[in-house]
Write a protein that binds this DNA or RNA. Structure first.
Lengths: 144, 144
DNA sequence: TACAATTATATTGTATTCAATATAATTATG
DNA sequence: CATAATTATATTGAATACAATATAATTGTA
């Protein structure tokens, strides 16, 4: 029984591991594609959010991306330096920082337009598989 | 048609995002569980591999975990300092570093034994869902 | 056997992540 | 209205990740 005692600890019995490895693998696929746009993967996620809805608070960006201020604040500062966005304190509540895209930030959308299909073409999943995966992952990420 | 032009760039149309967010969410579940063992998540993965097969090369650990030497080398040094393992150059090939668990490293396995079920109990997926997810993730991580 | 490739780790530099804490502004309450 | 509690963001510190490069050892080959 000695063998079975630790059976559960086998790497190939873990769900966390392929999740972790697949996530990194997919992120790595983005790196060369995002490089011409001057974006990292996390910066790209911020842009996706802002292209959909500009003028969000830092806290709203954090919520949408499931990231905390320790990650997002330096990220936004860097992106501000790069001229992609602006950060200004709200007039009505000085604690709040509102993020707006610059012209340059908005223009980048055009260059990014085809990235999803580029990525899609190098991900070997059928539409059904991708849909099933999507559903399962959302289930996983939305539980507290 | 302006709206549809950028439809693909919506955050909720991306597969990468729930993958990334779910991965981080799951890793975060491990943090408090691993803390009593003095392990981080990545260190735990190294231990899983070594508990299964001791005496691996650094390169073999890298392959199994899909990590590169820039991640693994400092990780192993830290774990060596903590007394969990030893790193020695191979006699037959001085380029090779062989990693062995110490007594302390092996003993930790007993304390880790129930972690998979602890994690399993806070992951809200059925056995079938977990199986399907597992299969899809392996598909994703194994494509070059 | 010199010495050009190759191989195995290690190092460096940049960019995340996140827990924990700090700070400043606003709100709630006695 | 003073101040305790809360809120929003920022800072700090520790641990990853990974691309790019470096170094040392080994192998292949003219």
């Amino acid at each position: 029984m000695k063998k079975n005692e630790y059976e559960q600890l086998r790497l190939d019995h873990q769900l966390c591991f392929p999740l972790y490895a697949a996530s990194r693998a997919v992120t790595q696929k983005y790196t060369p594609i995002l490089k011409p746009l001057g974006l990292t993967y996390t910066q790209y996620l911020v842009m996706l959010v802002l292209w959909e809805q500009d003028g969000l608070r830092v806290s709203e960006l954090c919520e949408k991306l499931f990231l905390d201020s320790g990650t997002v604040t330096p990220l936004l500062k860097k992106m501000e330096q790069q001229g992609l966005l602006t950060r200004e304190r709200s007039g009505s509540d000085e604690r709040v920082v509102i993020v707006h895209l610059t012209e340059k930030g908005m223009d980048l959308r055009e260059k990014a337009k085809n990235i999803p299909s580029e990525i899609g073409s190098c991900i070997a999943l059928s539409v059904e598989e991708a849909g099933a995966l999507y559903t399962l992952l959302y289930k996983l990420m939305n539980q507290k």
